[in-house]
Design a protein around this nucleic acid. Structure first.
Length: 578
RNA sequence: GGGGCUGUAGCUCAGUUGGUUAGCGUGCCGGUCUGUCACACCGGAGGUCGCGGGUUCGAGUCCCGUCAGCCCCGCCA
């Protein structure tokens, strides 16, 4: 609908977005998925009955009109509107459907806040009509299409896997489906197609992908929904370089075709150990220029009891320099200390350097040479702040990660743009903090970086893995690994995780059995599609890119899910409630 | 499971140390207006202050509980 249509007689249908009744002449914005266009009603070209009917029109009525596309008068052009140079001079109109008064507005004035998310979800069909939401889902569609085409062009085959699956108690809680035919037995909805895609590799499908729904019965967040979508990819006869290249080819195409962004060359890599050392987290936000440093040498042995005590206990003083941060107020530093405590540390230490000297808790130990040494070793200039946490790395890392992110956000130190990185060389196992038991740091089907099963059993925590994550701006977007295709290593891994022979057989026997008949080395990844799209449209809540999301209490407000079952329905399923 | 924020008209919000009749904007209804685009102007209707209990002469305001939404921790291989 633009200049090229001028002079044409058209028939348009859509929703009444907004109406401006000037008495003799009436303007109306008609809206559909493609946008807005102005309808002009004027007694000079609009029949009387149509003009009369206009008075009854409500916002969100569905109407169909016939008329002629014309240029607007020069002084009535709206440069803010895509179709603002033209209008449709209406000669006929039909009111197709009448809209009741709206619980929430679709045409929200520019200075008005959005309705509460509760109301937006309850009246989702109205919320989704807003042009912003229409744009989100157009981008989601483009991204899915690009990913599918990119993978297909790369030789991947799209194959579907079951929704009704066997429960695998590792990992997240499963959503369960009672079997009517087998009372007392349950299907599990898949947390991911992990095992099936490995079976497809054994089945000879070389390169598989699926845009797959995954379901996990865990507590929710802005970036976590009970059902979410992954671009699930697996390939045989590959190493990490092959997987990264495939992921990057797909990503480059999605970014370029959906939103016109350039991925910008190969994604850099960082080891898990380096990420923890320099950023305190395995998903660093590289838009923040500050890196963690070890201040232990510069600050210990000066008589500051806290620091010397931590050092003697094997801990370190780590922190980061905030250029110009000396201007940060005492109260904000106090709240920084609270942030550190909320993340497991005893508190945060701070030091400000001015032209005349140091201030902050350790300042009195820094008179003269020690202060100069500190400044030189860590590049601390007058006007800078150093924010530090003392303790074991297990406490300082999460605290410093939180501090680095909150202070950077406060100070406007988060740079624009997209900063991607692969995180590699994860440990195979982590110790459960409560029980000390080994748990898989990625998942139990990851290839260890050792070849002897004995090494796994004797010293599991020293074993590395061939797992990797793709991190964007501090968000884990994608995760994967080269899989363990050796039955002996796989059994050893499951043993380390605390399973006996019988349990291994009953839960994963089908996988290990398949490995007996010729299994190709394989690996892959799963990319969080909702998070990717959220990033593409510029939001952090994946509810903005899911048409009908659940609330944080896992309810569907629109349809009213979940809902109770009647007694006879329970009986048919062989269930009774406590 | 834990912590925090929010809940007042259809919607977005204000509401002072507890005090008389709870307000602005928008939407809705009625009216005027022939080039608007958040049209403008005039008039009107609209309230279980989330719900329950308590303190008080008196509670939107204070206390306890509860429900809902959101954010975070735990959890999410």
């Amino acid at each position: 609908m633009d200049e090229e249509a001028v002079g044409r007689t058209v028939r348009l249908a859509g929703w009444v977005h907004r109406r401006r009744d000037l008495g003799g002449v009436v303007f109306l914005h008609l809206r559909d998925r493609t946008g807005l266009v102005q309808l002009a009603f004027n007694p000079d070209w609009t029949p009387g009955p149509v003009v009369e009917q206009l008075g009854d029109l409500n916002p969100e009525d569905v109407i169909a009109v016939g008329g002629r596309v014309e240029m607007r008068p020069a002084d009535a052009v709206n440069p803010d509107m895509e179709t603002g140079r033209v209008e449709v001079r209406v000669e006929a109109m039909e009111r197709v459907s009448e809209a009741a008064p709206l619980p929430i507005l679709v045409a929200i004035p520019p200075d008005e806040e959005l309705p509460s998310e509760e109301l937006r979800l309850r009246h989702r069909v109205l919320d989704l009509r807003r042009p912003e939401m229409q744009r989100n889902f157009r981008i989601r569609h483009l991204a899915a299409n690009s990913a599918r085409r990119a993978l297909a062009d790369d030789g991947f085959l799209e194959i579907e896997t079951p929704f009704l699956t066997r429960r695998t108690p590792e990992g997240a809680r499963d959503y369960l489906v009672p079997s009517r035919i087998h009372p007392g037995e349950f299907y599990a909805l898949p947390q991911s197609p992990q095992l099936y895609k490995q079976l497809l590799m054994v089945a000879g499908f070389d390169r598989y992908f699926q845009i797959a729904r995954c379901l996990r019965d865990e507590d929710l967040r802005a970036d976590r929904q009970p059902e979410f979508t992954q671009i699930d990819v697996e390939m045989a006869f590959v190493d990490e370089d092959d997987v990264f290249a495939a992921a990057e080819r797909m990503l480059a195409r999605v970014l370029s075709e959906a939103v016109g962004i350039d991925l910008g060359g190969p994604v850099p890599r960082m080891t898990h150990a380096d990420a923890l050392e320099h950023y305190g987290t395995d998903k660093p936000d590289l838009r923040i220029p500050w890196r963690l440093e070890d201040f232990t040498d510069a600050l210990s042995g000066l008589g500051f009891g806290i620091i010397d005590g931590v050092r003697d206990a094997g801990g370190r003083v780590r922190g980061f320099r905030v250029p110009g941060g000396a201007a940060i107020s005492r109260s904000r530093l106090d709240s920084a200390s609270a942030t550190a405590q909320a993340n497991g540390a005893k508190g945060a230490l701070w030091l400000k350097r001015s032209e005349t000297g140091w201030s902050g808790p350790p300042a009195r130990f820094l008179e003269g040479e020690p202060g100069d040494r500190l400044a030189a070793a860590h590049g601390i200039e007058p006007g800078d702040l150093a924010l530090m946490v003392a303790g074991p790395d297990s406490e300082t890392s999460p605290s410093l990660d939180a501090l680095r992110r909150t202070i950077a956000a406060d100070e406007g130190a988060v740079e624009e743009g997209l900063r991607w990185t692969w995180i590699t060389d994860f440990p195979l196992f982590e110790a459960d903090p409560d029980t000390g038991m080994a748990v898989a740091s990625h998942h139990p089907f990851t290839m260890p970086d050792v070849t002897e099963p004995e090494r796994l059993l004797s010293d599991p925590f020293s074993v590395g893995s061939r797992a990797y994550d793709l991190v964007l701006n501090g968000t884990e977007l994608c995760s994967g690994s080269i899989r363990c295709h050796r039955p002996d290593l796989q059994r050893a891994i499951l043993k380390v995780l605390g399973m006996g022979e019988d349990e291994i057989e009953s839960r994963f026997g089908f996988l290990l059995e398949s490995f007996r008949y010729g299994v190709p080395p394989h690996g892959g990844f799963a990319m969080g599609f909702d998070r990717l799209v959220a990033m593409l449209v510029g939001t952090t809540s994946i509810r903005e890119v899911i048409a009908f999301p659940k609330t944080t209490a896992a309810r569907g407000l629109l349809e009213g899910a979940p809902s109770p079952l009647a007694a006879d329905e329970l009986i048919e399923l062989g269930l009774s409630l406590r």
